[in-house]
Write a protein that binds this DNA or RNA. Structure first.
Lengths: 113, 113
DNA sequence: ATTCTATATAACCTTTCAGTTATGGAATGA
DNA sequence: TCATTCCATAACTGAAAGGTTATATAGAAT
């Protein structure tokens, strides 16, 4: 996967409330698929699909415990997404300062710019 | 829109490479739709659709300059997404001092993260 | 051996998405 | 007035997303 494809996969995975709730649940530690599925009004295969999306994005990984495949959070993919956002935020803050200057300019010239 | 819906819209908007490239371009300042469309191998209506997705997420806003509708970046939605990611990243990176706060938050929101 | 549990996979359906072309409409300019 | 530029919208298409039920598989328990 290219870096762009990884960002695609990560942001896509984060764009669904069920998947974000799954991540929230996994913050407390490893959880099995059935345990993850329990609070949702949704079938087990649906949860398995969501887990596949999260796994493909590298946001979770899975182990083996008898028949169970416990899920745990992986931080790497998130760091990339956060890095991308942080760059933008920094520059945007810079732009914001410039925008203030521009607005001051426009106001000084009363729309004659 | 609920906070969850805003996160949906923001992450969905960020999950497309064309839209991320548009944001990149807008970092240099306001840009018109035609100027945005030019570097892409894509029709103008396709770009207009992408802009609509970005606007719905609150990531951009648009002005008026004669026939042009110049687009500019808006930082608010980006800040929300960054905030969400940062909470999670801190826990994943082993900085557990905010875990209690986060878990209390999640419980208050009944898993509707 | 059989059965129960946990999970994955397959097949299907419906909705949404990302693109297209064609057209419409507002503001500018000749 | 008439044409041109910039952009939006409508209608269509193919593909992907998100759900379903039914079934397969692997390991545990009986």
């Amino acid at each position: 996967m290219t870096p762009s494809e990884r960002l695609d996969a990560t942001f896509t995975a984060l764009a669904d409330p069920t998947r974000r709730a799954i991540l929230a649940r996994l913050m407390t530690g490893e959880v099995s698929v059935m345990e993850l599925a329990e609070p949702f009004a949704m079938s087990q295969p649906a949860i398995s699909k969501h887990l596949k999306v999260l796994e493909r994005a590298g946001l979770i990984s899975r182990g083996r415990d008898a028949q169970r495949r416990p899920c745990r959070i992986e931080g790497e993919a998130l760091a990339e997404a956060t890095g991308w956002l942080d760059e933008y935020r920094e520059v945007w803050e810079g732009n914001y300062k410039r925008l203030d200057m521009l607005l001051a300019d426009l106001q000084a010239n009363q729309g004659k710019a």
